[in-house]
Simulated assay, not measured.
Amino acid sequence: MLIDLLGGFGEKGRTSVAVRSGNDHILLDAGIKVGASGAEYYPALNGSLADIDALFISHAHEDHIGALSWLLSRGYAGRILMTAETLKEGPATLAGYADPEDLRRFPLPGDRIELFEPGETLKMGNLTVRTGQSGHVVGGVWFAVDDGENRVAYSADVVPDSNVFVMDTIPQCDLLVLDASYGADPVPGTMRAQAISDWIAGHARGCLLPTPLSGRSLELIAAMPGPFAIHAGMRASLEAQISATAALRPGVSDILGQRLRGAADWADADPLPSMPLLADDGMGEAGPSSRLLPRADLAGFPVLLTGHLPSGSPADLLHKAGRAGWVRMPTHPTLLGNVDIWDKAGRPVALGHSCAPDQLNQLKSHIPLLRTQYRTGQSFVVPRGNNQ
């Protein structure tokens, strides 16, 4: 079994992994890299796409689905598989991050999408593809691909200690491709959530919290210490996410539903509210926050950023200028979470995606079989011996 590292290795963004075994060839995710341009914006796919049998999408964030229209524009004609939630959220992500001409000619092709449920096991030629809930977003999954001799588990984005979402255990494998977004960050999610709650409480008379529409928004609602507002365009999606009770921890749906029902709706024409305001997306690159960040900055309205800040993004520039705070809301594994994932997977050889090289080297001191030298554009032969 051969793994092609097409994006997200030694870098954050354009996450994409290809698995090849015999005549079978599948692609796991096809993201874009915010802040990049030209070829570096897309997965490092060279040559013909004709031999790729299927594309599996883990969830609808831009660094995992944003290159779909680009793939289609290059003639990709294979199968496309994702969950119903990813299909529903995908068009908004592509609208924000796909090349406009690619998107015009090749929107998300609903008639070609094959749906599966998290937890299903799928067949693709001689490959068996197992899925499980990621704990990152409703409908988000990890993948474990088995060819009868080897198994590679690709985490995509996972959150083992989420206060909101359920994550299924990744199975034992010969190669584990970890979500290393936070490197060896030792601070648990509960402490970060409390720090965010305290910051919001100190700015209860008005502040802006840019956030992705799916995933982190629910984590922030769970951390809210009092009344808050949401951009009105978010409500339907948030309601749908909260109603997906199988993806949420027991009792969380009721708590979040009650909080959302009490939240005020805010529209672009309204004055900035005298309470915390959630608006998508998290980087100020698209959606309402692309308009709200400059408006908040001009008005001196406090801003708290809680996720990844790609270099040169509006959120990054505001933070570097000292005009926005930042406290990470963990929506990826911290140190103990990744060590536990690796332990339960049988302590196999591992690669880390979505992480800068220096942070990956720090993580290696805790996961000795982590191979830190691999970069986007390289390939890796899956070793034998760990598969259970």
Rank of each mutant, 00 (worst) to 15 (best):
R291Q: 14
S181G: 07
G385Q: 01
I242Q: 03
S162V: 07
W142S: 04
Q172F: 02
D198L: 09
D146M: 08
R130Q: 15
Y76I: 11
K88C: 10
S48D: 11
R328H: 10
A144H: 07
P91N: 09
A223Y: 03
I200N: 01
H319I: 05
S289L: 04
L81C: 13
A144Y: 09
R105K: 15
P368D: 14
F301G: 11
F106M: 07
A247D: 13
A193I: 08
L370S: 07
L28C: 13
T169A: 13
D254K: 13
R74C: 10
L277F: 08
P333V: 06
F301H: 14
D280S: 15
V141Q: 02
Q241K: 00
R14W: 04
V339P: 04
I196Q: 03
L176T: 10
L208A: 09
G284A: 04
W266C: 07
L317N: 10
I113N: 12
N126Y: 00
V382L: 06
E85A: 15
I26N: 03
D111K: 15
L363W: 07
M329P: 00
K123P: 00
L55R: 02
I80K: 07
L94W: 08
L45Q: 06
E40K: 12
V17C: 04
T83I: 12
W142A: 10
L309S: 03
R384A: 14
V129M: 05
L351G: 01
V152W: 05
N387W: 06
L6N: 02
L55H: 06
H231P: 04
G257E: 03
Q359P: 00
A267F: 02
K123M: 05
L318V: 08
